[in-house]
């Protein structure tokens, strides 16, 4: 780890000023990604601005949405009664993430910004990683990529976005509140992430020195049915091989009035499956529709030899989740 200066900010303005004054400064919140990558030698800031004591710890229900301060921990949000009642899929995604210890540290803002688990990205002794060093190549494409992405990939990068909760948040049309020296702005989460294209190092819409201040999560309407299903090799404390976030409104005639679908573990960004939503909306909740929706969700998949199974697994995971939320068997 490169030596750095540690500073602690107590006000958002101070934190932003510190960041603006030093282009090689990074913010430090929960640290579960930041410190890990600093130990690996991937991130080498010369200044760390500890933002854990900024006043961004609140959870507030406002106009049909939950406004979650960026520094709310994953465990704190999972324990929030409104989230539990009105956003059960968010709670489920949180509780299936990492471990309790990590969830007590990791913040919601940090979670949205967490970096991929790709071991080529995380090992600077591997030269070829376009995400670390644009133009250097992608070792994963011809290397070990069983856990890598099949959606949103490019020949330059196939790294999976690892977040669970972000998958539910893109499905729910959450909005990121961003603070910066140049002012505050709001960005829909669906527009926040960038697929790699030929600039895998650019992962999101955040500009240098900006900070996520809060996430606004629209509450599900009463009567909505939802779930988050995570499939992985072991039962806990592991990232998803595939996951599905589903919320639907089911009419009295068992037609799907509206649908929100997110996929995780299979894409370079938290994946909003609008094609699946289009198939589901207005259709009867039955196995045939679910299968069509799942097929639509992965229509653009680009599988590689070791991760081809994810195209199949993602569909099965989505179908199972649709069955669970609608109560319609296969």
């Amino acid at each position: 780890m490169r030596p750095f200066t540690y500073v602690r900010a107590h006000e958002v303005g101070t934190a932003l000023a510190e960041a603006e004054a030093d282009s090689r400064a990074d913010f430090l919140a929960g640290g579960t990604t930041q410190l890990d990558l600093m130990k690996d030698g991937v991130l080498r800031p010369d200044r760390l601005i500890d933002i854990t004591r900024l006043p961004l710890h609140g959870i507030e229900e406002r106009q049909g949405a939950l406004i979650v301060g960026a520094l709310v921990t994953m465990e704190e949000l999972a324990a929030d009664p409104v989230a539990g009642r009105r956003l059960p899929l968010v709670r489920e995604a949180l509780l299936r993430s990492a471990s309790v210890q990590l969830r007590n540290m990791a913040t919601i803002g940090g979670n949205l910004l967490q970096r991929t688990r790709c071991r080529y990205f995380r090992d600077p002794t591997v030269a070829a990683c376009n995400k670390r060093d644009r133009g250097s190549g992608c070792a994963a494409v011809h290397g070990s990529h069983r856990t890598h992405a099949v959606l949103g990939t490019s020949e330059h990068c196939i790294a999976t976005h690892a977040s669970d909760v972000a998958v539910t948040l893109v499905a729910l049309d959450a909005v990121v509140h961003i603070s910066g020296a140049a002012g505050d702005r709001k960005v829909p989460l669906t527009g926040f992430y960038r697929t790699p294209g030929d600039t895998p190092d650019v992962e999101n819409d955040l500009r240098p020195g900006e900070l996520i201040a809060a996430v606004e999560i629209p509450l599900l309407p009463e009567g909505a049915r939802s779930d988050y299903l995570k499939v992985r090799d072991r039962s806990s404390y592991e990232f998803a091989l595939a996951s599905a976030a589903v919320a639907v409104g089911l009419g009295a005639d068992r037609r799907i009035e509206w649908a929100r679908v997110g996929l995780g573990g299979v894409a370079t960004v938290p994946w909003r499956a609008v094609e699946a939503e289009a198939v589901l909306t207005g259709s009867p909740a039955d196995g045939e529709v679910f299968a069509s929706a799942a097929a639509a969700a992965v229509a653009g998949a680009e599988p590689r030899p070791q991760n081809a199974f994810k195209v199949d697994l993602a569909q099965r995971t989505l179908v199972r989740t649709l069955q669970t939320v609608t109560g319609a068997g296969s």
Binding site: R117, R119, Y120, V126, A139, H142, G143, S144, T147, D233, R234, S235, S236, Y237, E238, F239
Partner: peptide, 21 residues
């Protein structure tokens, strides 16, 4: 890794061992 023999999953987050669950 093919070619080099570099171990591609040399962490306890990537080399999966059983957990309590």
């Amino acid at each position: 890794d093919p070619g080099s023999g570099r171990i591609a999953n040399a962490t306890l987050g990537d080399y999966i061992v059983p957990v309590n669950a």
